[in-house]
Amino acid sequence: MTGRLNDALRRVPVWPLYIAGAVPPLWWLWLGLTGGLGVEPIEALEHRLGELALQVLIAGLCVTPLRRHLGVNLIRFRRALGILAFSYVLLHLLVWLALDVQIPAQIWADIAKRPYITVGMAGFVLLLPLVATSNDRAVRWLGPRWRRLHRLTYLAVLLGAIHYVMLAKGFQIEPLLYLGGIVVLLALRLPVRRRLLPA
């Protein structure tokens, strides 16, 4: 069953994922310019991009557990998920810089003074070496070190979710669900778990 599924997945090309991934930001930008994002389009665009980035990062975290526990192999798509997620984080950051805060002096003050922004920025910075080494040449060059380096994803995603939890007003359940999901996906990777689970 999973064998047939994996065979079918092997025949699915990866490139359409990049095309599909470009659609939401472009569509939202169009909506934002034409009034489709409501009367405060900057906040809407910023939040949608941030949330999409988290969702795609979570999708990337699902690849390994799906293969290990259900035998479904999506590893071919993982790089695209990572690059798309990074692109969304970058756009989210650019919207914040250029459209939301706007004032350079305030940007630096915010990064230093506002913990939720510090945390979000830290997550973004951690993604930089990962996107820089997401090509085949870097994978070959780094060898086994590539896997160790890319474990930074775990911390980056966690920081992204904490960033979301920290900016909620009042007690809100949605950011906590993201954080909870991420913690579960990370816990599935703990070596202890691996030994406890049947091979």
Binding site: G32, L99, Q102, I103, K113, R114
Partner: peptide, 22 residues
């Protein structure tokens, strides 16, 4: 007096669209 999580020095007027200045 800033909110602990964000600055209160500026504000954005609703209705200015995607390029609304602070």
């Amino acid at each position: 007096v800033d909110h602990p999580r964000w600055s209160q020095a500026t504000e954005r007027e609703i209705g200015g669209g995607l390029f609304s200045p602070r």
